[in-house]
Each structure stands twice: as structure tokens, then as C-alpha cells.
Design a protein around this nucleic acid. Sequence first.
DNA 1: ACCCATAGTTCGTAGTACGAACTGTAACCG
DNA 2: CGGTTACAGTTCGTACTACGAACTATGGGT
Lengths: 154, 154
Amino acid sequence: MADEGGRIGVVAALVRATFLVNAVYAESAREYGLTPQQGQLLCVLMPRSYAMGELSTLLRLAKSSLTGLVDRTERNGLVRREPHPRDPRGTLVTLTPRGRTLAREFYDETCRRVDELPAGLAPDEREVLATLLGRMVRDNEVPIVFAESGHPPD
Amino acid sequence: MADEGGRIGVVAALVRATFLVNAVYAESAREYGLTPQQGQLLCVLMPRSYAMGELSTLLRLAKSSLTGLVDRTERNGLVRREPHPRDPRGTLVTLTPRGRTLAREFYDETCRRVDELPAGLAPDEREVLATLLGRMVRDNEVPIVFAESGHPPD
DNA sequence: ACCCATAGTTCGTAGTACGAACTGTAACCG
DNA sequence: CGGTTACAGTTCGTACTACGAACTATGGGT
């Protein structure tokens, strides 16, 4: 069989790893009463607030899609719209206290689960994996959709 | 800044890489008139046909979700339901000729694009990345949602 | 024959995502 | 100043995604 036991190409490895992480992310979100998209929104907002337009770029969503996502998340009491301090046209999206708590819990739990995925790798192998993926992520300018610790920088 | 230039943990690296691959996959699908889910269905069916129940397990979808996905994809003329040869209750989902052609094109194009993502890595680094991710994928029993070549085994 | 498990579908609900069209403010320019 | 253009977000209509509960129909065991 070409599958079990054989070498795997980078492409298939990346796509299948993506499938795996997606599943873990979705399951974790679900257990916290979140959709993956709402979970992602909370994670993005952990370090700081963003304007709608920034979020749209960051999450690669059409503006109208983002309006809906923020609407629903706001309805659930997890984020809040407030006027942008510098631009009266703009809106800042911020975590509510409840949103921050839930974000933290979801984030931590998701980290634990994703951390389990490469459990079969030795510590130095994990380090190598992190470095290589980290470079790929940086080279492709992936926005901070999932910060290192979720804390704002000191 | 903690982001650009700093070390990155395995967890954040995996999650952000996932976000990246998702985006590439979705964009590629879109250009072929597919949703990511329909594209994934086509890719799964490239090596062989599956019964609904198998697909449900493979794609981690509730049975009712799969019914809808196959409905829509069938309506687009890309897959076909046919009776299961061994179980009259069962249904086999198969690619139509048009579905097979489109699957091939989508698969190839997606491979090209995903292959570009680690372009900044040296050949041996790509090899290492593939091996480590490959082990993670195997350890976690990720189904063949994206086969190595998409061809049935000889 | 009866009962239970399995394979799929139907239905209702909520969420996701998009483009086109729209509102309102900012900023520029004559 | 007034007009135009750019930008920030929302609204609306459409299609798709995903789920659980309830249902149909066949298979297999006893």
C-alpha cells in the first residue's frame, strides 16, 4: 500500500495534517459552544482589538461575511462593537469579559489537544517541526490568527 | 515582537499552517467552481468509490450532512449514486467522467499551490517536514482525504 | 415471523460566505 | 465652500454547510 508505512510527500502531508488540525479545532470549539469561526475570532481578539476592516483582512473574509460573524458572536455576548477612537467611520471589535474568559479556556484547551497530535515525535523532532512550519508560516505572511500565548505583548 | 523573527511553538505553528493550507485549498476550489467540501469529496473519491457510511466516517461528517453534500455534488453532475453490489441498503458514490476530470484538475492545481508554500525550505528540509508531518498524520490515523497521487493502486 | 441493527434520507434550525447595492463619513481639490 | 471620490460597514438575497431527531427500508439473527 502506498499509504501506511510509505513515504509521504510534503503536499499530502500538509493537506492531511490540515485536515487533522481542523478536526481537533472544530471539536474543541464545539465543546465550548462555539463554531470554529467564532472560536477563531475570539483567538484573534485575545491579544488586542481590531477594526472590522482589519479583521476582514486578517481572517480573509469578505466584509459582509465578517459583519455576520461579529453579529452572531456579539449576540452571544462574547464580543462588543465600540466606536473607533481615531476614525468615526470605524468600529472596534473587542472581547467582553465573558468573551475573554471563554477565549482563554477555548484557547488553552485547543493548545492542549493540538499539542497531543505530535506526541509520537521526540522533543527535538517537535522542535524541528515547529521551526520548519514556523518558517513556512512566516514566509507566507500568515496573520496572527492564533498567537503564541494569546497575551498582549508587555 | 513575539511574532516576526521569534521562535514559534509547535502548537501555534500547526494551527497557523492549517489556516494557510485551508486558505489555499479554498481558493483553489473556488477557481474550479467548487466549495472546499465538494473538492474534498472529489479528492477522496479519486482512488476509489465509497459507500455513504464510509464517506461519513472518512470525512467526519454526520450522515445527514453527507447526504446533502452528495446531493449537491450529484446535482452538479460530478458524482453519481449507484446501488452497492453487496448490500441493497447501501449506496456507492462514484465520480462521473466529468467529476473525474474536474477532480484531477483541481487536485493537480491544489498540489502545485500547496507545494509552493514551503518554497523557502531547502530540499532536505522539505523532506524532513514531510516525514515529521507524515508520522503525525499516521499516528493520528488521518484517513486518506488527499491521496498521494490520486490514482488507484496498481 | 419477530426483533433489532444498519444504511440512508428527510426535515427543521443555525451558521457560513459571497457579491451587489447601499449609508455615512473623510479627505481631497478646485 | 461645494463636489467628487475613497473608505468603513451594513443590508439583502442566495447557496452551501452541519447537525440531531425522526423516519424508511433492508439484513440478519433467533
